[in-house]
Design a protein around this nucleic acid. Structure first.
Lengths: 200, 200
DNA sequence: CGTTGCCGAGACCGCTAGTCTCGTCAAGGG
DNA sequence: CCCTTGACGAGACTAGCGGTCTCGGCAACG
């Protein structure tokens, strides 16, 4: 049995923090405008002025690097607003989600990352925790509203969560329809079974 | 200018229909149980007992072969039921969509195909016509209902279509929640703003 | 000042989509 | 009947990918 807490403090050269930053920045940068240039390990390393081995010394795969690059910028804690009004809370969450998806460079980066995850099960697993915390926030808002009686007691909350995030990802990835503020308000109201006029 | 209608009837050996069938069957078969074996051009050709060039002689890319294999089995015409009741029609469409997605081998094949499309823009474009005809059927049902006054005149029909297909693809691809009959009925009613009890 | 371990660089491996080139084989037309 | 045409199976080949391996150099400690 070895001592688990640092049997040997550390010897030799330390990790280059500048290289770490350069890799994350290059990763997010390439991810954001992945229109022309493909985001490969080679291009990330080259853009960061770094050897490929340095990259693989600290991350297990390309996807892990890119996810780290995204998380480096994305808000880690997801707020679940609690104003006392379900409609108000839900509108806020939906609007905030739509808006953050439009922002550069995180928006395009997330899009590229999800497409990569479609073929890389390890990356898909890593992305799950990212999305799950966001799903949980919406579920919290809905359940608080249900407890206040603003939703039928037997309402299937998971169905509503998936109606929201399903539509979000559908439009985010395909880009066939907007994710703007009016859409956000209409969607929030639609989920609550409210009248949802096109012109409020 | 040449005569567009067969300037030269045809000479030489004709296309081998058996090879075409073997390729499509092998493609769908591999697509359906893509758990272990990866669906590569090599494996398709080998499973069909065919040279790779035969495959590329008739299809422009691997994705085109796989999509053809899927379309070969999938219903090409998408019915838009018209019973006179929006709720009834929508329930039918949603239920039918969920059910056909569970069927083998088309269901798993479609799942794999969409994942491939995430990285192959050409395949994504080919898939668009497949999905668009299905979106159109749902839109038709909803618009008929709106004309009958079963939906507010200013209802955003595209938002409803995306709430449905968004949730469908979301659950279909991630598999985190069921696409069964009760879910279909609840979703259809939820879209119409009906009370949607868990126990109808 | 020597050991340790990170650094950049790039060769290398295995796998993939897609191309090219064989020799072969079938369906006509002369 | 045989010759031209073009599809056929087989497989070598190219280019690009993720990931590994090895190298000489360099920085941080004891």
């Amino acid at each position: 049995m070895h001592d688990t807490s640092e049997p040997r403090p550390h010897t030799g050269r330390r990790r280059n923090e500048a290289a770490r930053r350069a890799i994350l920045d290059a990763g997010l940068g390439l991810l954001a405008d992945a229109d022309g240039a493909p985001v490969t390990v080679e291009t990330i390393a080259r853009a960061a002025g770094v050897g490929k081995q340095t990259l693989y010394r600290w991350w297990p795969s390309k996807g892990a690097v890119l996810l780290d690059a995204l998380l480096d910028r994305a808000a880690q804690d997801v707020p679940a607003p609690d104003t006392g009004s379900l409609q108000e809370d839900l509108r806020a969450v939906v609007t905030a989600t739509f808006e953050s998806a439009q922002r550069s460079p995180s928006g395009p980066a997330l899009r590229t990352l999800v497409r990569e995850a479609a073929r890389d099960p390890r990356l898909a697993e890593l992305l799950r925790t990212f999305t799950e915390s966001r799903r949980a926030a919406v579920r919290t808002v809905l359940e608080r509203g249900r407890e206040r009686g603003e939703l039928p007691a037997d309402q299937d909350v998971d169905l509503l969560v998936d109606q929201f995030y399903g539509l979000f990802w559908y439009r985010f990835l395909l880009g066939h329809a907007p994710l703007d503020r009016p859409t956000a308000l209409r969607l929030a109201d639609s989920l609550l079974g409210q009248a949802s006029p096109e012109r409020p």
